[in-house]
Design a binder for these strands. Structure first.
Length: 755
RNA sequence: GGGUGAGUAGCUCAGUUGGCUAGAGCAUCCGGUUUACAUCCGGAAGGUCACAGGUUCGAGUCCUGUCUCACCCACCA
C-alpha cells in the first residue's frame, strides 16, 4: 500500500471493478423488499454542477445503504429533454453562428437538438460515475425515448377523454422572446423600476349626477394598454365614487364610451381608487371582464408590437414606442396629470428573463378542479372519496399521509400551493419536445397564433375543423371524410407535463416487471425549489394515471452555496466545479463535504477548505488500513477469529467494541430516518478520533508484544466501520477493502450491513 | 400582502421527543513527533445560543412579543 491514498490513481479502477462485477444490477425477488429511487433527471443541455453532485451523493447513500441491508435496489438514472431551456440554449448556440432555428427548419432543428442532448447525456453519465453514483446505467432513460413519449401522449388522451384536458381562449403568460405560452410556475416575479402615470378619463355623464366633476383619474403602469380598455372600475364601498357607478366615461385618444363598474378587485387605497380595465392584457382585469361580461380588445400582439385593433396610428409599433407616443399625446391633450416613480414586481420568463405579457390565446389546459370517478377501489378507500379532482387527489394523498414530505414544514408550502392551483396551460409553441397528439381537419382548427407562426400549415385547405385526439395520424376526418386536410397541432407539451409522469413512465408503466415490482417508488429525493413545479405534479399525475402515489417519501435538499453562504453564480465567480474538485481531492472528499453539515430543506455552504478536510479524512481511513495491514502481514502467528467472548480481551478492547456497537445502531437509525449528516459525522468521529487517535495508539504497545488478540480487535473495528462509511465514501472504502488480506472474509461479507 | 426558514465560537454550520459542564470543521495560539498518516499527534483559547418576557426542578430546544436577514408564494393597477 502506498503511503497516501491517491484517488486519482484508484477511483477509475474501482469504477471499472464495479462495472465488471455488475455490483449495481439487481434481481427482482418477491421475498425481498424492493427499494427504488427514480433519479430526478438532470437537463441534458449542460454538464452537471455541484448541486447535482449533492443529490447524487444523497441518493447514492440511500441506495448503497439499502443494498447492503439486503434489499433489491434500483436507482434509475435518466435525463430530461428540458423543453424550453434546451431550446433557448440551443438557439443561443445557433445565434453564435449567425443562425436562427428558422434557417434549419423544424425537423432539422429537432434532429440537431436531439444529437446535442444525447451528447450531453453521455457526458452527464460519465460524471455521475465519477461522483460514485451506483445507479443502474443499463436501465437509463431519456424523457424523449419513444416508449416514454408514447405513454405521455396516452396520458393526455386519457385526460381528454375524462374532459380534464380542454382547449380554450384564455389569458396566458406569453414570452415574446421564446414565442410561447408559459405556465404560471414558469414566470418569475422580479422587481422593476417603472412609473405610475395618472391619467384623466373624461366623463360622458350629465352634471346633475356627477356634480362639477368632469373626469376621473386613473393611475396605471401600463399606459399603452389604454387602447384596449373596456371599462373603468371602482370599489362599491368607496364613498368617493359611488355616484359614478354605471355611468360612462370617454376613453382618451380613442373616444370610445366605456362603462364605470364596481368590482371587489379594486383596492381603494391604491392610486386614486379608480382603475382602467383591460381584460385582454391583465389577469385581474381579465377576471373582472369575466364577471362583468366586458369586451376584450387585444391591442398588443404576440410579437410585442401593437395590433390592428390598437388603431392605425399605433399598429406595428413596439410596446415601448407605443407607450411613449401615448404618454406624449395624453400630455399634449392635458390628460396626463402627473408621473411618479414606482417599483413593482413584473413577471419575467424564467428561462430567458424577458418580461412576459399576459395575452389572450387559444391553448390547451388541464382542469384541476373538475371531479372525476376514480375507478379504483383501493384509491377510493385511501382518499375516502369516489369522485376527486386532480387538485383534491394531491391534497388528500398528503393530508391522509399516504406520502410523507421531509422536512415536514414543506407540507404547508405544498398544501397552500395546491389549494390555490389554477388550470395548467400545457401547450407550448416550441419545436423541442413531444408534439401533441392532436389533429385537426384542415387549417380551420388552428388558432390565429398557430397560423401566424406556421405559415405552411395555414395554407392547408380549411377543412371542417374537427378536433381528433389520436396517437397516430388519422387517415381521414371522421366527420367530413376528407383525407388530405388532416394536420397535426404544431404545439408541444410543457416539459413539466412529461416530467410529471416520470416515476411511472421511466419504469415502463403499465406492464413492465420493474414497474410492478418497484412502483410506488421508495423515495423522491430532490430540491425544495421544485416542490410545486415538479413534485406536486408528479403526485397528481401519478395518482390519476396509476391510482397509486408515485413515491412514499419526499426528501427535499437545499441549495449548495459557497464558503460564505453566498449563492453560487458565474458572474460572482464563486462556482465550484465538481469535476475539478474530484480531480484534485477525490470524489469521496466532495461527497462527504456535501453531506455532512447539511440538513433537509436547508442550504449548505461549502468551500475548498471543507473539501480538503475530508480529503485528509480519506487519507486517514487509508492509513488506518495500511497500519493494520502491515501488522497483519508481519505476524507469523494465526490471528484468532474475533468474537465478543474472545480470550484475552482487555477493558479497553471491551469499551471500544461497545462503542462500535453503539455506532452501528446509531448509524442504522440515522440512515433510516434520513439523518445523513449526523450519521456521517459520527462515523468520521469514530474512525478518526476513537479508533485512530486513541485505540490504535494504545494497541502499539501490545503489538510490540506480539499480542494477536489486539490485531483481531483492530481488524474487527476497522472493517466494520469501513462498511458504515462505504455509502458515504465508496471509493476509499472499496480501495482499502481490496488491500486487506484474507481476514476480511472472516469478518463478514463485504456487501452486508453490520449488525 | 401571505407563508417558511435562519440568527449558536473569528468563519461555515450541527445540536433528533427540553437533561448540555453547548459541539464539529476551518482559522488562531502553545507544544510534540519522522517506520500508519505533516493530508500527523497532544493541548489551549474562544459562546449572557439575536433581544425581551413566560412555562418548567431544568430552556439553544416549548409559548408570546420584538428586531435583522434569506427564501418561496400572490392578479394589487
Amino acid at each position: 500500500m502506498e503511503k497516501r491514498y491517491q484517488p486519482q490513481k484508484l477511483e477509475n479502477k474501482i469504477s471499472k471493478l464495479w462495472v465488471s462485477k455488475k455490483t449495481f444490477s439487481y434481481k427482482r425477488d418477491k421475498n425481498k423488499k424492493p427499494f427504488s429511487i427514480i433519479m430526478p433527471p438532470p437537463n441534458a443541455n449542460a454538464p452537471l454542477h455541484i448541486g447535482h453532485a449533492m443529490f447524487i451523493a444523497l441518493e447514492d447513500i440511500m441506495t448503497r445503504f439499502n443494498r447492503m441491508k439486503g434489499q433489491v435496489c434500483l436507482w434509475l438514472p435518466g435525463a430530461d429533454h428540458a423543453g424550453i431551456l434546451t431550446q433557448v440554449v440551443f438557439e443561443k448556440k445557433l445565434a453564435s453562428k449567425g443562425k436562427t432555428r428558422f434557417d434549419l427548419g423544424r425537423s432539422e432543428f429537432y434532429r440537431q437538438c436531439y444529437s446535442f442532448t444525447q451528447k450531453n447525456k453521455k457526458l452527464m453519465y460519465d460524471q455521475l460515475k465519477k461522483i460514485g453514483g451506483s445507479a443502474n446505467f443499463a436501465k437509463e432513460k431519456f424523457t424523449l425515448d419513444p416508449k416514454i413519449s408514447q405513454e405521455v401522449l396516452k396520458s393526455f388522451m386519457a385526460l381528454y377523454k375524462d374532459k380534464l384536458a380542454y382547449r380554450g381562449d384564455r389569458l396566458v403568460n406569453w414570452c415574446p422572446r421564446c414565442m410561447t405560452a408559459l405556465s404560471d410556475l414558469e414566470v418569475e416575479h422580479l422587481e422593476v423600476k417603472t412609473k405610475l402615470w395618472f391619467i384623466k378619463y373624461p366623463l360622458k355623464t350629465h352634471s346633475q349626477i356627477t356634480g362639477e366633476t368632469r373626469f376621473l383619474v386613473v393611475a396605471t403602469t401600463r399606459p399603452e394598454t389604454l387602447l384596449g380598455d373596456t371599462a373603468l372600475a371602482v370599489n362599491r364601498k368607496d364613498q368617493r365614487y359611488q355616484m359614478f357607478i354605471n355611468q360612462k366615461a370617454i376613453l382618451p385618444l380613442v373616444n370610445r364610451l366605456i362603462p364605470i363598474i364596481a368590482d371587489k378587485a379594486v383596492d381603494m387605497e391604491f392610486g386614486t381608487g379608480v382603475i382602467k380595465v383591460t381584460p385582454a392584457h391583465d389577469p385581474t382585469d381579465w377576471e373582472m371582464g369575466q364577471r362583468h361580461k366586458l369586451k376584450k380588445i387585444s391591442v398588443l400582439g404576440f410579437n410585442n408590437r401593437m395590433t390592428k385593433k390598437a388603431g392605425k396610428e399605433y399598429e406595428g409599433l413596439k410596446k415601448n414606442e407605443a407607450r411613449r407616443r401615448i404618454v406624449e399625446l395624453l400630455n399634449r391633450q392635458n390628460l396626463l396629470i402627473k408621473v411618479r416613480n414606482y417599483n413593482h414586481s413584473v413577471g419575467h420568463c424564467e428561462r430567458c428573463k424577458t418580461i412576459v405579457e399576459p395575452l389572450i390565446s387559444k391553448q390547451w389546459f388541464l382542469k384541476t378542479n373538475k371531479r372525476i370517478k376514480l375507478k379504483s377501489k383501493s384509491l377510493e378507500q385511501k382518499l375516502g372519496r369516489k369522485q376527486v379532482s386532480l387538485k383534491e387527489m394531491g391534497i388528500l394523498a398528503v393530508k391522509k399521509k399516504h406520502l410523507k414530505i421531509l422536512p415536514h414544514r414543506f407540507k404547508i408550502n405544498y398544501l397552500n400551493w395546491m389549494r390555490n392551483l389554477h388550470d395548467w396551460c400545457i401547450s407550448r409553441q416550441l419545436w423541442w419536445g413531444q408534439q401533441m397528439p392532436i389533429y385537426y381537419c384542415g387549417s380551420k382548427g388552428l388558432s390565429p397564433l398557430q397560423k401566424q407562426m406556421n405559415p405552411k400549415l395555414a395554407k392547408v385547405e380549411p377543412g371542417c375543423g374537427t378536433v381528433i385526439v389520436s396517437l397516430t395520424k388519422p387517415k381521414a376526418c371522421p366527420k367530413c371524410r376528407k383525407r388530405k386536410s388532416i394536420i397535426q397541432d404544431p404545439d408541444v407539451f410543457d416539459t413539466w407535463f412529461s416530467s410529471a409522469q416520470w416515476p411511472y413512465t421511466s419504469l415502463g408503466f403499465p406492464n413492465s416487471h420493474d414497474y410492478k415490482y418497484f412502483y410506488p417508488t421508495s423515495v423522491m429525493e430532490t430540491g425544495y425549489e421544485i416542490l410545486n413545479i415538479w413534485v406536486a405534479r408528479m403526485i397528481m399525475m401519478g395518482l390519476y394515471r396509476t391510482k397509486k402515489v408515485p413515491f412514499k417519501t419526499v426528501y427535499l435538499h437545499g441549495l449548495v452555496k459557497d464558503a460564505f453562504g453566498e449563492k453560487m453564480s458565474k458572474s460572482k465567480g464563486n462556482v465550484i466545479n465538481p469535476l475539478e474538485v474530484i480531480a484534485k481531492h477525490g470524489a469521496d472528499a466532495l461527497r462527504m463535504a456535501l453531506v455532512v453539515g447539511a440538513t433537509p430543506g436547508n442550504d449548505i455552504s461549502i468551500g475548498e477548505e471543507k473539501i480538503k478536510g475530508y480529503r485528509n479524512f480519506t487519507n486517514k481511513v487509508w492509513n488506518i488500513g495500511r497500519f493494520i495491514n502491515l501488522n497483519l502481514k508481519s505476524t507469523k502467528k494465526n490471528i484468532p477469529l474475533f468474537s465478543k467472548n474472545l480470550k484475552g480481551l482487555t477493558k479497553e478492547d471491551k469499551l471500544i467494541i461497545k462503542k462500535l456497537e453503539q455506532l452501528i445502531k446509531e448509524t442504522t437509525l440515522n440512515l433510516e430516518t434520513y439523518k445523513f449528516s449526523l450519521a456521517g459525522e459520527a462515523i468520521y468521529h469514530f474512525l478518526w478520533h476513537e479508533l485512530a487517535d486513541k485505540y490504535l495508539e494504545y494497541s502499539k504497545e501490545r503489538l510490540n508484544k506480539k499480542d494477536v488478540v489486539v490485531l483481531a480487535v483492530l481488524s474487527h473495528l476497522y472493517l466494520n466501520s469501513l462498511k458504515l462509511l462505504h455509502p458515504f465514501m465508496p471509493f476509499v472504502t472499496e480501495a482499502v477493502w481490496q488491500e486487506m488480506p484474507e481476514i476480511k472474509e472472516k469478518v463478514l461479507a463485504s456487501s452486508s450491513w453490520p449488525k
